[in-house]
Amino acid sequence: MSNKIKLAHYWGAGCGGCDVALLDIDEKILGVAEIADIVFWPIAVDGKVKDIEAMPDGSITCTLFNGAVRNSENEHIAKLLRKKSALMVSFGSCACYGGIPGLGNLTNRKEILDLVYTGLPTSDNVEKVIPQPATHTKDGELELPVLYDTVLTLDQVVDVDYYMPGCPPTTNLINEFLGIVEKHVKEGAPLPPKGAVIASQKTLCDECKRKKSVKKIDRVYLPHEIPIDPEKCMLEQGIICLGSSTRAGCGAKCLEGNQPCRGCMGPTAEVLDQGGSMLSALASVYKVDEKEALLTEENIAELMAQVKDPMGTFYCYTMPKSIIKRKVVEKKKPVKKEA
């Protein structure tokens, strides 16, 4: 009992998939119970925030925090768990890069609340009641967390020791990491350097077993639009695959399922902006023929307009961690269109 590690697993703005991923490590979960006391894990075990507050600082060996930070409660608990934990792990793509909820940065709090509570065909809200942080009732004051305008990554709010990307992280990566922590606690084995990404240092294409040759495409297709050759590189078939801009470590799971990579492992070690990197790669595989010199910039703009939604395609998981981070608002609207 005494040398058991203390583990916490919390969800911020996520889908619950990361919690399930931890449950999904099969019989290893029993091993987890053997080496660890789970002190806090809202989806699976009982536990109260006030119990955590009562613990000495740094007394939780490791917190796995999944989900992004997009409301005051997410932020409060992230800070509390950080204070109480020796190791803070950013668990899953949402915590690491904003993930799918991160695309909320294309809009803002007001637009989201208005749409969800009053603007949907199914909403029946004549009085336009929108949730408020505090509501006075005759029985007292009711409180709700405040939704933020901008979705944040965990490391934009607290200091993070390790990153474990993936939507959700694979069983292999979870087991590998828990094994490291256990060895550290039981045998004093060294931990990875702070800031390490628990995944591969390579690029997903390196892990992908498909046959690769010269990449030259003249248009892009959505996966359902053509029969996909399961042996051949997706990008060579004109299907946008984020492999070249994505960190390896998942075992090229989606490619095995004959689907292109959407980039959930985040940018490779060498790159800041996964989206910018993929945009560059895709633009470079468009083929050039003898007539190229005769093409105008308008012709090229038309060609590239085949990529319908660059943001949603290239930053599907990483908008809050991108260089620009969120949508901006120009004061003035378009001046004049170029001739």
Binding site: L282, A283, S284, M304, D309, K327, V329
Partner: peptide, 14 residues
């Protein structure tokens, strides 16, 4: 090609 695509992206960024 990159600049054409980047201009679309910048527009999506606002």
């Amino acid at each position: 090609r990159r600049i054409a695509l980047l201009r679309v992206l910048l527009e999506q960024y606002g």
